[in-house]
Amino acid sequence: MKNGSRPAVAVEGLTKRFGPLEVLKGITLEAHDGEVLAILGSSGSGKSTLLRCINMLEVPDGGTVAIAGEPILLKEKRGGGREPADGAQLDRLRQKLGMVFQSFNLWSHLTVLENVTEAPVHVQKRPKAEATEEALVLLDKVGLSDKRNHYPSQISGGQAQRAAIARALAMRPQLMLFDEPTSSLDPELVGDVLRVIRTLAEEGRTMMLVTHEMAFAREVASRVIFLHQGRVEEEGPPAQVFGAPKSERCRQFISSQLRS
């Protein structure tokens, strides 16, 4: 059941358009247990849309997404497009996906600790005491024990993103999805967040990580995917993608990123 037979996520033939704009043009990829997939690509290449299609925050027009072997059921919508066919199934599968957003999206009416226990208690129906105990361990892990009773408006961006990571981990997800987790942070706050993500990688967690931190991607990723104009332009182990890319566009992108 481990590697091979049932990938944590399997995406096949994914297409997505926004009006006339075709953002994803048939993406196929898999992430197996324990893999860290880094997703690179210039701005507007469809990286966020890809992650958002995996948990159906955007519903793809074509193709399938399967979480731990179970395809997310979609149906045709009247007047074009598709929509989730089974809300309960989607809610259940989404619990296996820990999403970390570029803009944190912590719930502003809850303290850091409450943010972490909210979904375990009110979605997964776990006992509050147990969820709190686990949340405190997670907050300690991301270095936020002393901020547990602060509200999101009272902490820095770097702290907020680490809280958001703890919130996602509290779901005990099979797959973590990171959408440029450090892109809206001041440079001096990036390091703390990357350190947490590196720890997760070392623990063998399955992750998909959209990032512009090239050095970091090279270091933690087990596989790198380069998206260009809605397609997988290059895919391979970091040494190959960074060291000897087959695609000219990928080579240009990487050298431009390393220069800046």
């Binding site: 948990n55 925050l57 989607l90 809610d91 259940r92 599968l93 989404r94 619990q95 996906l97 999403m99 957003f101 999206n105 912590l106 719930w107 502003s108 979904a119 009110h122 979605v123 997964q124 919130r167 996602a168 779901m171």
Partner: peptide, 10 residues
């Protein structure tokens, strides 16, 4: 914030 809740199955 609504999307975050949805993403966690709420």
């Amino acid at each position: 914030q609504i999307e975050a809740a949805r993403a966690f199955g709420m």
